[in-house]
Write a protein that binds this DNA or RNA. Structure first.
Lengths: 246, 246
DNA sequence: CGAGAACTTGACTACAATCAAAGGTAGTGG
DNA sequence: CCACTACCTTTGATTGTAGTCAAGTTCTCG
């Protein structure tokens, strides 16, 4: 539960998310300015990064690890509204709270910026605002794509959709059009259910069914082999070029 | 089906969406520059504004009327992913296509900008990019709020959620905390079903049920009176300050 | 006034939720 | 090293909500 702080981290030039995160378009001098206001925070698997009710005093990027964005109703029903992978941005400049719970699913390293100075930099450094707009538009597309999954797909299609997304976002598979893919499943059955709008029992049943039908193989409970990604995507109801989801 | 074009419309200073649209933060000189590249287009109720497969050569704001954003699967299942009300923005700078079908539900007037010059202005005029970022973040929040509705709410809660949103977004009710509200329902039962991830029969049944339970009254099939908005919002499963949805 | 669209209601069905129990797996401490 | 605990997962039996199929009614507008 202890949060480690490091006031200065590795050089931005060496950062693994340098050209995908909110700083992607920054020039050397802009990067130097960002470097002055940044700090790193580590979170352990299972730890809450932000509560929806909290006043957030920072924004930042996921450097490594896997986190989730969830909403909860008073009676406890929860819906996951986003997956956060390395380079994804957390927090909303110009707004106090977070609206969502942000939870680390694996150990997470975040590159944080104090909110006030970051907001000032957004004004003085258009490259940051431009990149953030681009990323936000991508997230909006992803959220809308997911609305189709939640509103119109069957349980089986939902699982197939999730696995298709995870397979295509896996760092080892990125940008290679491989049709035979293996990926780590960082989510429990319950977390999958919360993302898909299902119960964990239904998730378990449908995973078993996909396995039975040869669409996936379970290397372990948390590691999945997809022998034919195109076929899985067809099962998801996507046309072959697929849904681009966060 | 005929689209009317007017190369120059009313002055931006008199525009009803002047301080809510993408141009909200512009100074007089910036507005003058925008005015040079803008043109108006009218669409009739039922007309498609953009097809998802189309290459879009413009972006723009809804000036008046009501439009919808929908996605469709190959087998015909459709999911509405957004409602477009006056001041909402259509199109994505920096991307070719639209990804969604945009359809006029009522007659619609749009204030359009050719895409290329608008993209150039986004770079030269930070006020536009700033406002667009703000609007996009709001839409992202709305989309995520809606994910909770689609994923976790019952049919009755879904209808109550939709009516709560529409009641609070109705122009005549805006910014007054009235608890007794009447609003126009610009959507058919089928369109409501597509927004809520239900069938039109289920929508019809649940509307009847809400009426039977005294939560709403039907002035006509397309005009709804809500005697107690707080109670309706409770029925939607929202806490009293409610979900802020597009 | 008539035709077509939009809407309502009923009967039946099916998919996923719920309730319940048992099997696995990982981590802890004796 | 094994026993014990806690959590995660699977599977089965049953229920319930919303979907499907099918009339029939009410609007709208030409």
């Amino acid at each position: 539960m202890n949060v480690q702080l490091k006031s200065a981290g590795p050089n931005c030039g060496d950062c693994p998310i340098r050209h995908r995160a909110v700083c992607a378009r920054c020039e050397a001098d802009e990067l130097a300015a960002l470097e002055k206001i940044k700090y790193y925070r580590n979170f352990e698997a299972g730890q809450t990064i932000v509560w929806s009710s909290d006043r957030m005093d920072f924004v930042g990027s996921v450097v490594s690890g896997f986190a989730t964005l969830t909403q909860t109703m008073e009676d406890g029903r929860t819906q996951m509204v986003g997956l956060l992978l390395p380079s994804d941005f957390v927090g909303r400049p110009g707004r106090e709270g977070s609206a969502y719970d942000v939870t680390a699913t694996t150990d997470v390293v975040m590159c944080c910026f104090h909110k006030k100075p970051f907001e000032q930099m957004m004004i003085s450094t258009p490259h940051i605002a431009q990149r953030l707009l681009e990323m936000t538009l991508d997230e909006l597309d992803a959220a809308r794509e997911w609305m189709l999954v939640l509103g119109r797909k069957t349980a089986r299609e939902k699982i197939a959709s999730l696995f298709s997304i995870l397979a295509r976002r896996d760092p080892k598979e990125i940008a290679n059009g491989a049709n035979d893919v293996t990926f780590d499943l960082a989510l429990t059955r319950e977390a999958m259910a919360d993302y898909l709008g299902l119960t964990l029992e239904t998730v378990s049943r449908q995973v078993s069914a996909l396995k039975r039908d040869g669409l996936i193989e379970l290397i372990s409970k948390r590691r999945i082999h997809v022998p034919d990604l195109a076929r899985l995507m067809e099962e998801a109801g996507d046309d072959s070029d697929g849904g681009h989801i966060a």
